[in-house]
Design a protein around this nucleic acid. Structure first.
Lengths: 112, 112
DNA sequence: ACAATATACCTCGTCTGTCAAGGTATATTA
DNA sequence: TAATATACCTTGACAGACGAGGTATATTGT
């Protein structure tokens, strides 16, 4: 993968919450959706993904339940909570702020 | 500080190199310049800053030398190398790519 | 029939970057 | 003479990412 993980780091939660804003989903599908949306350029590592689920659930941002698939592998579905929605909007807002800040700091500049 | 460090994380090196693209400078001054440019919204923690200097020097991106101040505290100046300049441009390019990618992934969207 | 692949979940241990807390030393200002 | 500003530094803890490993079911190819 071409994108350094340190640049994405800290956005994993936002990415997952963005997916869950569309409705309940499960790990594997979320990762496929991410892959699809980025044209195969990016996907979360499984370990990262499931770590994030645990973290988000503990923060009260998501809840989970087992699907009732009668066939195939079992799926654990995740649902975003009101707390999660709030957190999501806050993260979006913070992204906008820090994006501006970074643009200011990393572009060539002169004086001071 | 209002900006979550995890969002900035991974950009420390780029920020420092951007400063050094303007010419040689030293730690304290670089941090003051960052503070100035962001209107006081952001500054690197000292431990982070000096860790980054060590890392960048080891990567061959910067070199350092002691200033010849006859008064006041001694200063260690840093200079960006050709390797560092190349790395800087690569980081800028990666920022553009990952910024696009993130925009795609974190904004509200429908269907998959 | 059997292997390979896809779907789907999970954990453990390591690595890396950040940073709180602590330290040193000199110069200026109150 | 105490506080603040300038200027450097290290240590240890912490958190997030992820490589490597594991389990189990369903489908597809040969």
């Amino acid at each position: 993968m071409s994108i350094a993980s340190d640049v994405i780091r800290g956005h994993t939660d936002t990415i997952i919450l963005a997916q869950l804003m569309q409705g309940d989903s499960y790990g594997y599908k979320i990762n496929r959706a991410i892959e699809l949306r980025t044209g195969g350029e990016y996907e979360l590592k499984e370990a990262t993904l499931y770590t994030a689920f645990r973290r988000l659930e503990q923060m009260g941002c998501i809840t989970s339940y087992w699907g009732d698939e009668s066939t195939g592998a079992r799926r654990r579905y995740y649902s975003i909570t009101p707390v999660g929605e709030q957190a999501y909007y806050a993260m979006l807002s913070e992204w906008d702020t820090s994006k501006q800040l970074l643009e200011t700091l990393i572009r060539p500049h002169q004086s001071s």
